[in-house]
Amino acid sequence: MNKFCQECGTELIDKELKGEGIVPYCTTCKQFRFLLYNVAVSMIVINKKTDKILLIQQYGKPVYVLVAGYVNRGEELEHAVIREIKEETGMTAVSAKFNRTKFYEPSNTLMCNFTAFVEDDRELHPNNEIDSYKWFTRDEARQYILQNSLASSFLNAYLDEKQKVST
């Protein structure tokens, strides 16, 4: 939550804004200051050749998650998807499709999930953010991803939708 005005540094007060409810207000600038938050992308990376899903382990944690990263100021989400996959894995995404969003309170982040396809894993050269990685079948990915996480909710929703389409 914003406690100080991002323009002048004055401590914000709570003030009623018609149609919006209580919104932080700067008494110096005479402006309402809507809450700021981070924006990030997470990707279900699929190898087109094998139809397997890439899950990674990072930051010394022994759990599998999706490739993800923050969106730079002014950057389009689709560009962030391609950039993050390239930076973290060395692979080039050939297409990306938006899935859904969910706000992640612990880091004050709006997570935007995509499915991204790579032709194959020939370019795979993980950077130092990735401790290890593995390609999983759809059923294995559902089993091995960190359970009860934002990553698992994105992956399971995607897999459930694909399962409905194929039945």
Score class of each variant (00 low, 15 high):
residue 37 Y to I: 00
residue 115 T to D: 05
residue 75 E to C: 05
residue 98 F to C: 01
residue 41 V to M: 05
residue 83 R to A: 07
residue 138 R to Y: 12
residue 52 K to Y: 14
residue 126 P to T: 10
residue 112 C to P: 00
residue 156 N to V: 07
residue 106 P to V: 04
residue 98 F to N: 00
residue 121 D to M: 05
residue 45 V to E: 01
residue 99 N to Y: 02
residue 149 S to C: 13
residue 84 E to C: 03
residue 121 D to L: 04
residue 1 M to A: 14
residue 47 N to T: 03
residue 14 D to H: 12
residue 86 K to V: 01
residue 44 I to V: 15
residue 136 F to G: 06
residue 142 R to S: 05
residue 39 V to N: 11
residue 150 L to G: 10
residue 62 P to K: 09
residue 148 N to V: 01
residue 113 N to E: 08
residue 130 I to F: 15
residue 145 I to F: 14
residue 160 D to F: 15
residue 125 H to V: 05
residue 11 E to K: 12
residue 130 I to N: 12
residue 28 T to P: 00
residue 35 L to R: 10
residue 22 I to Q: 12
residue 70 Y to N: 11
residue 143 Q to W: 04
residue 18 K to C: 08
residue 78 E to A: 10
residue 161 E to Y: 15
residue 111 M to T: 00
residue 106 P to Q: 08
residue 8 C to E: 10
residue 164 K to C: 08
residue 161 E to G: 14
residue 80 A to N: 04
residue 135 W to T: 01
residue 125 H to R: 09
residue 99 N to K: 03
residue 156 N to C: 07
residue 86 K to F: 00
residue 25 Y to E: 04
residue 33 R to P: 06
residue 72 N to L: 09
residue 88 E to W: 01
residue 163 Q to H: 14
residue 148 N to E: 08
residue 96 A to Y: 04
residue 20 E to D: 07
residue 28 T to V: 10
residue 41 V to A: 09
residue 55 L to K: 07
residue 15 K to T: 08
residue 74 G to S: 13
residue 58 Q to V: 02
residue 97 K to M: 02
residue 85 I to R: 01
residue 61 K to T: 06
residue 67 V to Q: 04
residue 112 C to S: 15
residue 11 E to C: 09
residue 72 N to F: 13
